[in-house]
C-alpha cells in the first residue's frame, strides 16, 4: 500500500489551476504554495507551473520563498517544472539572469519569439511515448551542462524536456492537455523518493 503523498503546487502566478486539475484526476493530494509558511517539510514533491518567470522569480524573493525552495530542491525534493518553471530551475539563462539555478542546463527564454511563434507539435517523450506538445512563448534548452542530464524530448532541433535526478523539466505544457501520463510519471518519482526516505 502506497503512503499518502502531498504535492506542493507553486501558486504565485500562472497556470497552477491546470496542474491541480491533473493531480485531482490522478487522486493525488496537493497544497498551494503562496507563502513561506506553505512550504512545509511534509511535501513529497513540488510543481512549478508555466507563467512569467520574471514574475514568479520576483515573488519568490519578495515572499521569502526563494532560498528555502532552492535548498529543498538541492536536497532532493522531486520537482516538476513546465515552461517558466524550466527557466526558474535552469543554471544558466542565455538571455536573462538565472533564478533558482538547480538544474544544469542552459535555456533561452522566449526562444521561439512572440505569441505568433507559439505552436503545437506531436512528439515522443522518452519513457512516455507519443505525447501532444504545446509551446506557449516557450523557452528551449540550448545545452546540458552535466552528463547525468537525460534528454526526454527534442522538437524542431532543440531539447525541450530533461530529467536530472529529482528534477523533471520541460518547455511544453502537459497541464494544457488531457494526457495525464507525465504527471503520473512525476508522482512515481515522488513515490520512489518517499519510499527510500521511509526505508532509511
Amino acid at each position: 500500500m502506497a503512503e499518502k503523498m502531498t504535492i506542493g503546487v507553486l501558486a504565485l502566478q500562472g497556470a497552477f489551476d491546470e496542474h491541480e486539475a491533473m493531480l485531482k484526476e490522478l487522486a493525488a493530494d496537493y497544497r498551494e504554495i503562496r507563502q513561506r509558511k506553505d512550504l512545509t517539510d511534509d511535501l513529497d514533491g513540488i510543481i512549478i507551473p508555466g507563467g512569467e518567470s520574471t514574475v514568479q522569480g520576483k515573488l519568490l524573493h519578495d515572499l521569502g520563498l526563494f532560498e528555502p525552495l532552492r535548498q529543498k530542491i538541492i536536497q532532493g525534493l522531486p520537482v516538476m517544472a513546465t515552461c517558466a518553471g524550466l527557466i526558474l530551475l535552469a543554471e544558466e539563462v542565455s538571455n536573462d539572469k538565472p533564478l533558482l539555478a538547480t538544474l544544469p542546463v542552459r535555456v533561452r527564454r522566449n526562444a521561439y519569439g512572440r505569441q505568433l511563434g507559439s505552436f503545437a507539435a506531436d512528439g515522443a517523450v522518452a519513457g512516455i511515448g507519443d505525447y501532444p506538445l504545446r509551446f506557449i512563448r516557450a523557452p528551449y534548452i540550448e545545452a546540458c551542462l552535466a552528463t547525468e542530464v537525460q534528454v526526454l524530448n527534442e522538437t524542431a532541433g532543440h531539447i525541450t524536456a530533461v530529467q536530472y535526478h529529482n528534477q523533471l523539466a520541460m518547455a511544453f505544457h502537459p497541464e494544457l492537455t488531457h494526457d495525464l501520463r507525465i504527471h503520473a510519471y512525476f508522482l512515481e518519482i515522488a513515490a520512489k523518493r518517499k519510499k527510500l526516505a521511509l526505508g532509511a
Binding site: 508555466g50 507563467g51 506557449i136 512563448r137
Partner: peptide, 14 residues
C-alpha cells in the same frame, strides 16, 4: 485559437 487561449492561462494570477 487554443494556443491563444493558452497564453491567457499563463497570465493568470498576474
Amino acid at each position: 485559437y487554443e494556443l491563444n487561449k493558452n497564453l491567457a492561462q499563463m497570465l493568470k494570477g498576474g
